[in-house]
Computed example of a mutant assay.
Amino acid sequence: MWTKLMLSAAAVLAAALFAFLGDRMIQAYGAARYQAGLADGRVQQLPAILTANAAAAQAGLDARDRLIAAEHNHATQAVRLAALIQQSEDEGRAYEASDAGRADCLDAERVRAIEVTRAALFPVAAAQTSTSGQSGPLPADATRQASGWNPG
C-alpha cells in the first residue's frame, strides 16, 4: 500500500512537473513569437522610415538653399542701394556747392538727376509713373501719386 501511495504521489508530481514545464515552454514560445513579430514589423517599416528621413533631410537642405539665395539677393540689393545712396549723396554735396544749389529753386538738370536716382532706387514705382524725358509742368499731386507721401 505504501508503494502504491508513493507511486501515485510520484505520478502526480511528474504530471505537475510536466504541466509546469509545458506551461513555461508555451510561454517562452509565445514570447519568442511576439518578439519575432515585432522585429518583422520593424523591418517592414524600415524603408518607410528611411524614406521619411531622406525627405526631411532634403527639405532641410532645400530650406537652407533658399535662405542662402535670399541672403545673396539681400546682399546684392544692399550693395546696389549703398552705391546708389553714396552716388546720390555725392551728387547732392556737389550740387549744394554749386551756384544752382544755392538758388531757391532746383534747376532742370538737378530735377532730372533726382528722377534718375529715384528710378534706380524704386524701379517698380518708376515703371508705373514713367514720364522722364518729357518736358512740361508736373501735375499738382505728382509726388503723392509716385510715393504716397505729400511733401507740403
Rank of each mutant, 00 (worst) to 15 (best):
G152S: 12
A32G: 12
L17P: 06
D90M: 04
A103T: 10
Q86G: 08
Y29E: 11
C105L: 12
D104Q: 10
C105D: 15
L50E: 15
A125Y: 02
G92C: 07
A15W: 00
T131F: 02
L46E: 12
R42H: 10
L21S: 04
P123A: 03
E89V: 08
I85G: 05
A69F: 01
F18L: 06
Q35P: 05
Q128R: 13
M1H: 10
G41W: 01
L121K: 02
E89Q: 10
L138Y: 13
W149I: 15
W2P: 04
V111M: 02
R33A: 11
R24I: 02
A120P: 05
W2L: 12
E96N: 12
V124K: 10
V12T: 07
R118W: 14
A57G: 00
Q128V: 09
F18Y: 00
A28L: 11
A146W: 03
L84I: 04
F122A: 08
I49G: 01
L106F: 08
D40A: 13
A78R: 09
L17C: 00
R64V: 07
L46P: 04
A48L: 13
Q77W: 08
S130Q: 12
E71G: 10
I49F: 10
G22V: 04
P137F: 13
Q86K: 09
V116F: 08
A69N: 08
V116G: 00
L21T: 03
V124C: 04
P151L: 12
A94H: 09
G133R: 01
G148C: 06
H74W: 10
Q77G: 06
V79I: 14
L121P: 01
A100S: 13
A59E: 12
L7Y: 05
A36S: 10
D99R: 06
S8A: 15
R66E: 10
A83V: 04
A59P: 00
G37P: 00
L38P: 03
A19S: 04
V12C: 05
L46V: 04
Q128A: 14
A28W: 09
L7I: 08
A16K: 02
Q27I: 05
W2F: 14
A97N: 13
R24M: 01
A28K: 14
Q44G: 05
P123Q: 02
A82F: 02
G30N: 12
I68M: 00
I68K: 05
D23R: 06
Y29P: 03
A82E: 07
D141C: 03
T143M: 13
Q45T: 09
A39I: 09
S130V: 03
A31W: 10
D62T: 15
E89F: 06
L5K: 09
G101E: 02
L7K: 13
V111S: 07
G30F: 08
L17H: 02
Q45C: 05
H74Q: 15
F20R: 01
V124W: 01
L61K: 15
V79N: 14
G152V: 09
L7A: 13
Q87E: 14
R42W: 08
Q87C: 01
E96R: 11
A69G: 04
L21D: 03
P151G: 00
E96G: 07
